[in-house]
Amino acid sequence: MNIGLDVGSTTAKIVLLDKSKIIRSKVVSSHNWKELLDTNTDEHIIVSTGYFRRKVPHSAAITEITAASLGVRYYVPDAQVIVDIGGQDTKVIDLRNNRFMINDKCSAGTGAFLELAAHYFNIPIESLGKLHSRTQRSAQINNTCGVFAISEMISQLVAGYTIEEVIHGIHEAFAHRIAQMIPPTNQVVLIGGTVLNTGIVNSMETILDSTIVVPPEPQMINAIGAALYREIRSYSKS
């Protein structure tokens, strides 16, 4: 039995893996990560990842990049490029040549940007995808700065666009921002909690010339990767 514990900036996830089979998985908010572990959980079977990986019980702590690379292969063995859209940063991992890029200096291509937009409209972030799907028309948002994009959203509302059309535009701006980081490829695997927003997936599909793959439970991939890490390590040592 192996446990992958992914405590990120926004949510904490746990995956219990037995002989490469997922036995249990759960998500809570980051600050409640203790709820994920039983009092008798053996620390020696935990591999942690995420921002708080060294702050939680673990036998090994691995970065989200390694965790994502291992976790994605669980569902997509022939994965080429991974785009992990997190709360605070976005990571692009090219598995073909072990190269990766992280965008964390600016909120424009991260979950934080969408939170900012949802907060402005006073709607739950989970409803962004639904509102996106209600229209095909999009208000153009050019700004790559998350904060200035909000001013642009306001201007577009003033110009007569609906909230749905502005949200459509935000998702497209978001997708354009991330697309700049993606190397040429014919397949992209999207992971991370933000990918649960179908508006983002839809916009990425429109913008990229690649097949978009979203694995089941995309927010759990890094926890799966962390759990697999121990299996891979013990296999390579035996």
Binding site: I62, E64, I65, T66, S69, N98, F100, I102, I232
Partner: peptide, 17 residues
């Protein structure tokens, strides 16, 4: 710290991938 994360990830990648 963000840069340390990159170095750590790069090191892991070179070692296990």
């Amino acid at each position: 710290e963000q840069l340390k994360l990159r170095l750590e990830a790069f090191s892991e990648m070179l070692e296990i991938m």
